[in-house]
């Protein structure tokens, strides 16, 4: 069985946020909600300053706290490693949101879907996209499961101008992700949390 994962090459990433908006466009996430972001990390003091761009998204952890704490069973893990929320079962207790060490989950509050990006006016695009969502439940990055199930790569990977994001099967030692992790010493975010993320970073 495949285990899907992503490798983010921090050397290639230029912090352009194309991924952030490719994700917005693919998923039609409501105002203020991002399934992926590009964080900047700063160190040092002028004139010796270092700035890094670090894209973050749900890590689809193998040992996912969000799955463990979910009282309703709405958050589940697929055999291929994708951690998904079943909107019909979610009771909105937000235990998963609290439990995610990466703060990758958000509640979709009441009213958001009616408000839309243009405050009270829903664009035709939003009308279509918002029909997939439910208010009062917790949402997060889906690893673009619909695209992946059709054999496409996730939207953020597809757009990345620097090709800093690579998607593939972590279980297949020959996949590009596995090779990159091996060759460039890929590491998982906050490994001390023992969540075994499916997202790896290359420095």
């Amino acid at each position: 069985m495949a285990r899907f994962g992503m490798v983010v090459d921090l050397k290639r990433c230029v912090g352009c946020n194309a991924c952030t908006l490719a994700c917005k466009a693919e998923n039609g996430t409501p105002p203020g909600i991002f399934f992926t972001k590009v964080l900047e990390q700063l160190a040092g003091q002028y004139p010796i300053v270092k700035k890094k761009f670090i894209p973050v998204l749900c890590n689809h952890c193998l040992n996912a706290p969000c799955v463990r704490v979910c009282p309703s069973g709405a958050t589940r893990k697929r055999d291929d490693g994708m951690v998904l929320v079943d909107y019909d079962q979610c009771i909105g207790c937000k235990a998963c949101a609290v439990a995610c060490p990466y703060k990758n989950r958000e509640l979709l509050p009441q009213g958001k879907l009616r408000q839309g990006h243009f405050k009270g006016h829903l664009t035709p695009f939003e009308k279509v996209k918002y029909s997939k969502f439910q208010e009062g439940v917790v949402i997060k990055c889906t690893f673009c499961c619909d695209r992946v199930d059709q054999g496409l790569e996730p939207s953020c990977v597809n757009t990345c101008p620097a090709e800093a994001r690579v998607f593939g099967d972590l279980h297949n030692p020959e996949s590009k992700v596995s090779r990159l992790i091996r060759q460039r010493g890929g590491f998982q975010p906050m490994s001390e949390a023992n969540t075994d993320p499916s997202v790896y970073y290359l420095e």
């Binding site: 463990r68 704490v69 009282p71 069973g73 979610c90 909105g92 207790c93 208010e135 439940v137 917790v138």
Partner: peptide, 25 residues
Amino acid sequence: IHLGRPERFWRAVSRPQSSWISRTV
């Protein structure tokens, strides 16, 4: 009241083996 979907509160009991929220209920 805290729940995003209060009408589904009854689902909270389904996983006492792993979820502390289920357990408290």
